[in-house]
């Protein structure tokens, strides 16, 4: 799979940009949380694309955001 960069991303329509990012984030998130990967990816895709690109390059920041997303998701489901 080709690496994704900001230039390539910017040339795609907005929803396609999210799709491209989602396709790359999903397998990484699935490694941490197989059961919640779809929901977590959906949550992270609400963030700015520049942040999402950074997360693809930095496992630490991805992991931190995934943990954050899970906390938010659990709080939401507890309502």
């Amino acid at each position: 799979q080709e690496p994704l960069d900001a230039t390539m991303l910017a040339s795609a329509p907005l929803m396609d940009q999210k799709q491209l990012l989602g396709e790359r984030l999903y397998p990484l998130i699935q490694a941490y949380h197989p059961n919640l990967a779809g929901k977590i990816t959906g949550m992270l895709l609400e963030m700015d694309n520049t942040e999402l690109l950074h997360m693809l390059e930095s496992p630490e920041s991805l992991h931190a955001k995934v943990d954050e997303a899970i906390a938010v998701l659990k709080a939401h489901q507890a309502k």
Binding site: M15, K18, E23, A37, G38, K39, G42, L45, E46, K79
Partner: peptide, 26 residues
């Protein structure tokens, strides 16, 4: 839509075109 929606967050499925928050019924 808002964060109180029971169906939030929208679920990403690989290979399925992403529609973001439009996936959620109002």
């Amino acid at each position: 839509s808002n964060g109180n929606n029971i169906n939030w967050p929208p679920e990403f499925c690989p290979g399925v075109p992403w529609k973001g928050l439009q996936n959620i019924d109002p």
